[in-house]
Structure formats: structure tokens, C-alpha cells
Computed example of a mutant assay.
Amino acid sequence: MSTVGAGLLAVMPLHTISEVHGESGLRQRLELETEKLAEPERVGAALDLASRLHAADRYGREPYVNHLLRVAIRIVSHYEVHDTELAIAGLLHDAVEDHAADLAGERPGTPTEAALAELENRFGPRVADIVAAVTNPPREPGVDRQEQYREHVAASLDRNPWARVVKISDFTDNGVGIVYATGGVQHHLATKYRPLTDVYRELVTRPDTPLADHVKQHILDQLDRADQRFDAILDEE
């Protein structure tokens, strides 16, 4: 991996860090960002847990933890949310959806219930509530998968403004970063995500979405960029 000074690393686009410096570079960038937070050690504990849960997972050509790192970094850096629990939720936003049983351990209840209880025990009820809001429910028989996904996003984020911040960072990473996806996955993702950009535009611009106006405009610009990329991929078919 190439080495880079902290000053340059702090201003590099996140996907550029991923491409040039890999997971190590993203971890260094998160360390720089968590200096702005009141409890950086709690973020470190969340990253340790996320790294263990997702150790065998991949995100295209890279380890899955890179996606989680970018989501958390974007919340603190780009969205200017200097909130320890939001950074933690960003790192753990897929933990219950992807690894509920591993996270739950021997706790009683369904895997999802037990995993959320474990998150609450480790990081508090607010983190668990945010992660619950961005966790997709099991697929309902006879319901179109993508339609269920869109309805879940709209409903769960309608009542949880802080969960919107995490999910918007997640969506931005997936959408703007779709050009880094490999092979036929691009078309599948573009088909899944293209109908959602207007949903996120509406959520971002709500008065109760806890972001500064210039941050909201930045996100709207990113959603426009994602739409351009989705359309380019879908037009190739």
C-alpha cells in the first residue's frame, strides 16, 4: 500500500482512498475523523466488532469493511455530524441484517431480536434503534423483493430522522460508488437503486432531517450523480 500524509488523506475522496490505499487508508481516515468525536474509543470498539462479523464478506473487489468505513467516515466528515453514536451505527448498519446469529450469540429470542439486544447492551438503545430502522425485514412471500425494499426504506426512515443520515450515507456509497462494482452486478444494483433516489431526495429535504442546509445540498448533488450513473448503466442494456 502507498503511504500518504494525514493532511492529504483528510481531503482525498473516500473511493480514491479505497482504490489507492485500501482498508488501511480508510482506517487511518476514520481515526482522523474520530478525533472530532467525544468518545473515539467507542468507535474503535464498533470497528473491531464490525471487522470480526464481516471478516469473510466482500464488497465487489474489496473487503466489506471498506464500505462500512466509508459510511461512517462520510457521516462525520461530509455530513458534519460529530456524534459518536451515529459513527457507531454507520459501522454496524449491516451487522444485524447480515450476521444476526453471530452477533446474538446465546441470547434468547429470534436472531434479529437477540442481535439488536446485544447491540443495545454494547452500544446503547439509540444505536440499536438506528440499526433496527435500517435493517431490511425478512422477505414476504408473494411480494416483489424490490417493492418490499422500497416500501421498507420509506416507512422506516419516515419516523427516524437519525436513521436517515446513516441510510443516506449507505445509499450514497452504493450509488456513487456503483462504477466500482464488478461485472453484471452493476445492472442489478442500478435496477434496485434507481427508483429510490427520489425517495431519498424527499427525506433529505425534510425540515426534521438533522443536517445543515449546505450538507443537504451536497447530498442532493450526490444523488444527481448517482442517477447519472444508474441511467448510463441501464441505457447500455
Rank of each mutant, 00 (worst) to 15 (best):
G183S: 08
V176W: 10
G184A: 07
F171S: 07
Q146I: 09
E147N: 03
Q222D: 14
Q228T: 09
R150N: 01
R159V: 05
R206V: 07
P161F: 03
H187W: 02
D198T: 14
E151L: 14
A190G: 09
F171V: 10
L223I: 08
H218G: 04
R164P: 07
E202S: 15
S156L: 00
K216Y: 03
A226L: 04
G175F: 03
A226M: 08
R206S: 10
I168H: 03
L157G: 14
A226C: 10
R229L: 13
T197G: 15
Q148N: 05
K167E: 15
D158S: 11
S156C: 05
N174P: 01
D198K: 13
H218K: 10
Q222P: 05
P161K: 06
D227C: 05
A212H: 10
V176H: 03
Y200Q: 07
L189P: 02
H214P: 05
V204I: 09
A155T: 09
R159P: 02
D208I: 07
G177S: 10
P207K: 02
D158P: 02
L211H: 01
L157Q: 15
L189I: 11
R159H: 12
G184T: 01
A163S: 13
I219L: 14
D158G: 13
I178Q: 02
Q217T: 13
K216G: 11
R150Q: 02
G184Y: 05
W162T: 08
K216R: 14
Q222G: 04
D158Q: 09
T209N: 13
N160C: 06
R225M: 10
L196W: 10
A212L: 05
T209R: 08
D213A: 14
A226D: 10
R164F: 03
L189H: 02
K167Y: 15
H152L: 01
V165A: 04
T182C: 03
D221S: 03
R145S: 04
I178F: 00
V204C: 04
H188Y: 08
L196G: 15
Y180E: 11
Q222H: 04
V166M: 10
R194Y: 03
H152K: 05
L203Q: 14
V179E: 14
L211I: 00
Q148Y: 00
R229P: 11
L211M: 02
R150K: 09
T209Q: 08
E151D: 15
A154N: 06
A190Q: 06
R201M: 09
H187I: 08
T197R: 15
P210N: 10
S169I: 03
T172W: 06
Y193S: 12
Y193M: 14
R229Y: 09
P210H: 01
L157D: 08
L211F: 00
D158E: 12
S169K: 01
Y180C: 03
G184V: 04
T209G: 01
V199G: 07
Q222F: 01
E202F: 05
R194K: 15
K216A: 08
